[in-house]
């Protein structure tokens, strides 16, 4: 399973690599990172259909996670990648907007990695 993680914080990369150390080692998961919405779109254009799951932070300078979600759901129809949104602000507006735009799940920071791993398992089965 290939996961694209989009977040403006550089250390998110290190954290995810550490958190999914075993899964990466076993070859269950391949992680890719983008640090902005624009970068994420570039990556998806270059590596079509490869990203299975996109964890995107809503709060990013420039293109926001919601805009990215909208672009992804419009552009990449087959197969539609699973998009999970992550935000520090767990408010209703963001949640409703994300669901309306077709987000598959909605997580709030701080990310509970055990729960995330469970969700990844069920989503990809």
């Amino acid at each position: 399973m290939k996961i694209l993680v989009v977040d403006d914080e550089q250390d998110v990369k290190t954290l995810f690599e550490q958190r999914f150390r075993k899964e990466i080692k076993n070859g269950e998961i391949i992680l890719a990172f983008a640090f902005s919405g624009e970068e994420a779109l570039e990556f998806m254009n270059a590596n079509e259909h490869e990203a299975v799951l996109i964890l995107s932070d809503i709060n990013m300078p420039g293109m926001s996670g919601l805009e990215l979600l909208k672009h992804i759901k419009e552009k990449f129809e087959k197969p539609p990648p699973i998009v999970m949104m992550i935000t520090a602000y767990g408010d209703k507006d963001n949640y409703n907007e994300a669901i309306k735009l077709g987000a598959d799940d909605f997580l709030t920071k701080p990310v509970d990695f055990i729960a995330l791993k469970e969700k990844l398992k069920t989503k990809t089965q």
Partner: peptide, 21 residues
Amino acid sequence: AHEIQNPLNFVNNFSEVNAEL
């Protein structure tokens, strides 16, 4: 609050990862 939340998340996460390691 937002600015503190982010580093705190990293502190918590990395220390949890270190415990595993």
